[in-house]
């Protein structure tokens, strides 16, 4: 290939760079030793035996937290936000025609054992709430929530949005649970609930 014209820009620049073989500065070698020592130290103190599902470097104590005695101090509002508000809404108003309201609901502020039974086993079929008919399905929470948690979330909804019924103790939930121990299906609408003792 013919040599193209050399541009003035190419002519005026310095030659291509090269490297000298100067020895490595001692400081860099020292730094290497310090870093390797740090690595060995860090690894030897690392917690690598916890199950990874707990999250990196988390201990059992940290995850359990200072859990209060049963029933006392379980955060009903947090359970409501996580498990209930998807249907009944944060406002407790439900969705008209689809999900019944909890605010002012006769089922919520009514008999405590019936309210506990609803949360434990769910409801399927027609039910009338505050004069409005609903016909849907509420899931059962007997398997996923403990007595103290159900008591806390019921006490929470019974005290919110203008409701002012008495709190429900965990013992009452436990009693209701044993009463319906052999039930495996949801309650069949408002009619069956109304006949509960």
């Amino acid at each position: 290939m013919n040599t193209p014209d050399v541009l003035p820009q190419q002519r005026r620049e310095n030659p291509d760079p090269q490297e000298r073989s100067t020895p490595m500065p001692r400081l860099v070698l020292l730094l290497a030793l310090v870093l390797v020592a740090f690595g060995i130290d860090y690894i030897s103190h690392a917690d690598v035996n916890s199950p990874s599902a707990w999250g990196d470097a988390r201990t059992r104590a940290e995850l359990v937290g200072d859990r209060p005695a049963a029933g006392q101090g379980v955060d009903g509002a947090a359970i409501y936000a996580a498990m209930c508000s998807g249907c009944h809404q944060a406002s407790g108003q439900g969705l008209p025609g689809v999900f019944p309201p909890l605010a002012g609901s006769e089922w919520v502020v009514g008999k405590a054992s019936t309210a506990a039974a609803i949360v434990l086993h769910g409801v399927s079929g027609p039910i009338e709430v505050k004069g409005q008919p609903f016909n849907g399905t509420m899931p059962a929470f007997a398997a996923s929530l403990g007595d103290a948690e159900i008591a806390a979330v019921l006490s929470h909804v019974r005290s919110q949005w203008g409701n002012s019924a008495a709190p429900i103790p965990a013992e009452l939930v436990a009693n209701t649970r044993s009463l319906h121990a052999d039930r495996s299906t949801p309650f069949n609408g408002g009619d069956e609930l109304a006949q509960l003792p």
Partner: peptide, 12 residues
């Protein structure tokens, strides 16, 4: 290239 000096150390 711009300063016209070789790189100090191949080791580095």
């Amino acid at each position: 290239k711009v300063i016209g000096r070789p790189i100090q150390s191949y080791n580095l």
